[in-house]
Design a protein around this nucleic acid. Structure first.
Length: 419
DNA sequence: AGCACA
């Protein structure tokens, strides 16, 4: 009957222009709250991600009548409010206004604090983390650690804007499943801003990387027993690591030049040498980095990805057995970028036997009858290390390919970040 | 699914 028909009307609350929402999806965004609430009035303030589970929120209307309208509506509506498919429970807050205490994690900065939920530290390698976050810009440094909150990583970008983009795109989502070990079904990323601005990375190790300083000493002991599980989630690849990568280019519908490869592989560190050759009817290339760590990073990041959208020029990367390529000639198929200023003659390569044909059979192990560097065109082959990292001047810029292969959110791989 | 922060 009247008065809701129940003798006990326990849910009577004093109205407030602030409503309390609970059972929200994890890390619900402010705009989702506004979208839900604005039909009832003007939202003047919100506070999201409240409570231990971050699944509560407050919304403050301009007028109390607006809050009453919303609470009343959903109190009698047959279908409840929902956000992202979850039923949202709404009531008046027991406070009359939202007081904004911005938690430190909400203050934007260039360093993100990422909590990877539901995984052991060994489940997600630093290469995977680097790959995922590199989709948004150059990642300067990564430090990982285990805390009570779980497996966490600090990711340093150039600026807060880049970090913000990455945060917005990845917060609450999972690392693509194909990058996770089989036994991990999902691993939600919880991302906030760190107060740090510049991480102090002392070693390249299985738990920390400085991509701006490839010459940082490698803490090799830190790698032992833990590096190769990075690939060894399946434990199948037993191929020894190397600073030289062998890249097979499949479905090469577009021309891939040594310059293309240099651009692509330079994203991960200074490329010292490149040699391209034909083998088994396909194009392959050897890419030499100064160290195994950089090569590993590049390998993890690029394996299986395509240089061009649409599945063209797919890279299959393994470790080469070589450690130092013996580049004899500066040609369209081989380069030695470590040579400071090879007196580049203006003549063409005409007098020099085709390096590429020699490469495919002898590679670096063989001795070359003709020594010395071949003549070259006007291109300056000396890529001084200072041209790296490509943070300011993206290596991928000039070729239109925007090389963040399959991981650009919303471009070529929306499904990867589902959920 | 039930109220924030220093």
């Amino acid at each position: 009957m009247s008065g809701a028909g129940h003798a006990q009307f326990r849910y009577t609350q004093t109205p407030s222009k602030v409503i309390h929402l609970r059972n929200l999806p994890w890390e619900c965004h402010e705009d989702e709250l506004i979208q839900l609430c604005s039909p009832f009035g003007k939202v003047v303030n919100t506070k999201c991600n409240v409570g231990a589970n971050k699944n509560q929120a407050f919304v403050e209307f301009a007028e109390q009548s607006q809050a009453i309208a919303m609470v009343s509506y959903y109190a009698s509506s047959p279908d409840p409010a929902h956000i992202r498919g979850k039923t949202v429970y709404i009531q008046y807050s027991n406070r009359q206004e939202i007081v904004h205490n911005k938690s430190p994690g909400d203050v934007p900065g260039n360093v993100l604090l990422v909590t990877i939920e539901g995984v052991e530290a060994g489940d997600v390698s630093i290469e995977v983390i680097h790959l995922v976050f590199s989709a948004f810009g150059f990642v300067h440094k990564i430090a990982t650690f285990e805390k009570a909150a779980g497996f966490q990583a600090l990711i340093q970008f150039s600026d807060a804007e880049t970090a913000c983009t990455a945060k917005n795109q990845l917060d609450g989502r999972s690392i693509p499943r194909y990058l996770l070990p089989p036994h991990v079904t999902s691993c939600n990323l919880r991302i906030s801003y760190s107060a740090h601005t510049d991480l102090n990375i002392k070693f390249q190790s299985h738990r920390s990387r400085d991509y701006t300083n490839p010459y940082l000493p490698v803490n090799s002991t830190a790698f032992e027993g833990s590096l190769q599980p990075g690939l060894g989630t399946d434990g199948k690849k037993l191929e020894p690591e190397s600073n030289v990568l062998l890249a097979a280019i499949e479905n090469m519908q577009y021309a891939v030049t040594v310059d293309t490869l240099h651009m692509v592989f330079s994203s991960f560190g200074p490329v010292q040498k490149i040699a391209m050759f034909e083998k088994n009817g396909g194009t392959q290339a050897l890419i030499q980095y100064p160290d195994v760590t950089t090569a590993t990073v590049a390998k993890e990041a690029l394996e299986g990805h395509c240089i061009y959208d649409g599945g063209y020029c797919k890279l299959h990367i393994t470790y080469s057995r070589h450690t130092d390529l013996n580049i004899k000639a500066y040609s369209d198929r081989s380069r030695d970028y470590t040579i400071p200023n090879p007196n580049i003659a203006s003549s063409q390569l005409s007098g020099v036997p085709s390096a590429s044909t020699t490469w495919q059979t002898h590679l670096v192990t063989s001795e070359y009858p003709n020594s010395g560097y071949a003549a070259a065109g006007p291109v300056d082959p000396s890529q001084e290390p200072s041209s790296w990292p490509p943070g300011a001047s993206p290596a991928a810029g000039s070729i239109h390919m925007g090389f963040q292969p399959d991981l650009r959110p919303g471009v070529s791989s929306p499904p990867y970040y589902g959920k």
